[in-house]
Amino acid sequence: MIRETYVHYVAAVYALAWLVTLAYVVILNSKLGRLERELDEIAGLLEAKADG
C-alpha cells in the first residue's frame, strides 16, 4: 500500500521541521556571539577608564 514517493514527501515534512529548529539554534548562537563581543568591548571601555 505504501507508495514509495509518498515516503519522500512525509520525510521532507519531518526533515523541514527539524531543520528549522536547528536553524533557530544557529541563529541564537550568532546572537550570543554578538552579545559576547559587545560585552568584551564594554569591559575594555571600563578597564580603560579605570586605568586612566
Partner: peptide, 19 residues
C-alpha cells in the same frame, strides 16, 4: 495505523496541523 483513505502520507497531518 495508516489512514484508510490517504494511507501513509496522512502522517504529514500529525506534524502539519500542530505546527
Amino acid at each position: 495505523p495508516n489512514d484508510v483513505d490517504q494511507g501513509f502520507s496522512q502522517r504529514i497531518f500529525y506534524f502539519h496541523v500542530p505546527i
